[in-house]
């Protein structure tokens, strides 16, 4: 297949510390309309997603060990850690792609189903570290696939194309249009996904995930391979997603990105949750500095303070999802 033009510039461009980049946030009226359409927020104080003691064993490798997380409504949580720390594995455990060896995941008081399709139905959507769009479908169609679980259209209705069918298609199309406007891809709506620029493919994946009306959105390295401007735009986008009432967990290597975005940050190292706290707490924690890289503390600490990519972020890991 085609070679991925993904370069390592995600790491280099963002490390220039104080570059001020401007990027447009999603238009406010679109955000407002979408929030109304999706109406996700329930105003509950209880955590909506709780994982307790999640452990994942691959043969002799313990990829996750007793990971606890609780996500509250309207919160943005950052998950950082070196390559191979188990971040993606954790997402896979949350979304039913993997069944944890032990521990449990609870969504709004109910145990999380053990099947990716049902997890999405229950309101948890995700994106993938190595983009997994439907390449031969247009951007709009990709988002329409995301509407699958929420569309009221059975096989018979699909076959007959009656008034009910037309209504559900029209609704879905309208939502897709709004979502594409929300992530800023309106001009590419009829373009095949595989022809989109790389950064826009990541945005399309987010739009597709949002189409499932999730209450929790899991983003696996949403800015990998993006330049500074695109990264900033993504940050704005995630804020806007939070404003929709969606709670977000973000995996990212770019610490500046995470520290300026998240309400709470979790550091995962070799499958263990090392530190959890506000960005400031995590930034100053010597354990993070040490365990995160095993490099001389001062250097890393400096890097963490200025907010750079710490471990060669953006290099493709090529891990199986």
């Amino acid at each position: 297949m085609s070679e991925n033009p993904e370069t390592t510039d995600g790491a280099t461009t963002t490390s220039a510390a104080e570059v001020v980049v401007e990027a447009e946030a999603p238009p406010e009226e679109v955000t407002a309309e979408l929030a109304e359409d999706m109406h996700i927020a329930t105003g509950t104080r209880e955590p909506i997603l709780v994982s307790s003691g999640v452990t994942m064993q691959f043969g002799g490798l313990r990829a996750l060990n007793d990971v606890n997380l609780s996500l509250h409504e309207g919160e943005i949580i950052g998950l950082i850690g070196p390559n191979g720390a188990g971040k993606t594995t954790f997402f896979n455990c949350l979304t039913g792609l993997y069944t944890p060896t032990s521990g449990q995941v609870v969504l709004r008081g109910k145990p999380m189903p053990q099947d990716p399709a049902r997890v999405t139905e229950a309101g948890v959507a995700r994106t993938f570290q190595n983009i997994r769009l439907f390449p031969s479908m247009t951007a709009t169609e990709n988002v329409l696939v995301g509407r699958h679980v929420r569309m009221k259209q059975g096989p018979i209705s699909s076959l007959l194309h009656g008034p009910r069918f037309r209504r559900s298609e029209a609704e879905a199309a309208e939502r897709a249009e709004k979502l594409l406007a929300f992530v800023g891809l309106t001009r590419f709506s009829e373009e095949l996904a595989r022809n989109l620029p790389y950064g826009d493919q990541r945005r399309l994946e987010i739009a597709r995930a949002l189409a499932t009306d999730p209450s929790v959105l899991l983003l696996d390295e949403p800015t990998a391979g993006m330049n500074a401007q695109e990264t900033e735009a993504t940050r704005q986008l995630i804020f806007a997603i939070r404003d929709l009432g969606v709670s977000v967990v973000v995996i990212e290597h770019d610490t500046k990105f995470i520290f300026t975005l998240c309400d709470r940050v979790l550091v995962l190292v070799q499958g263990e949750l090392l530190v959890e706290g506000s960005p400031d707490e995590v930034r100053g924690d010597p354990r993070v500095v040490e365990a995160y890289l095993g490099a001389p503390p001062e250097e890393v600490s400096a890097q963490l303070q200025t907010g750079g990519a710490v471990d060669g972020a953006g290099t493709a890991e090529g891990k199986s999802e």
């Binding site: 990716p116 999405t120 993938f128 997994r132 439907f134 679980v149 597709r208």
Partner: peptide
């Protein structure tokens, strides 16, 4: 196009 992504979109494959 992508069976895993499809099921992540809620499609009961």
């Amino acid at each position: 196009e992508d069976e895993d992504a499809a099921s992540a979109m809620g499609i009961r494959t």
